[in-house]
Amino acid sequence: MIPLAHFMLISAALFCIGLYAVLSKRNAIMILIGIEFMLNAAILNFVAFGKYDKLHMGGQLFALFAIVLAAAAVAVSLAIILNVYTYYKNIDPTVIDQLRD
């Protein structure tokens, strides 16, 4: 029997690693990986608490929905990254600082 606090600690650590990647990376794909870490940390919390909800399965089903949302987000954002690369020849988000042509 694993205590619930350990699940929460692991997901907190993973969330903070993702936060660091989002804040300090100079590459759009690494920022995307950081966002995926944060989403995975949230999913771990959902699943860990969903163990105590056998009748309605709220935690596990919302973890499922979150995985689908993450997949959709990654597909769209990778398409945007490819477009940005064809336009700027660079995917460093500190360089790309204008929306107009």
Binding site: I2, I43, L44, V47, A48, G59, Q60, A63, I67
Partner: peptide
């Protein structure tokens, strides 16, 4: 995820991610 007794979520994680 398997240790939180969510085996279906674990398999979905493997397939999707």
């Amino acid at each position: 995820f398997v240790f939180a007794l969510a085996d279906f979520i674990a398999v979905t994680q493997l397939i999707v991610y």
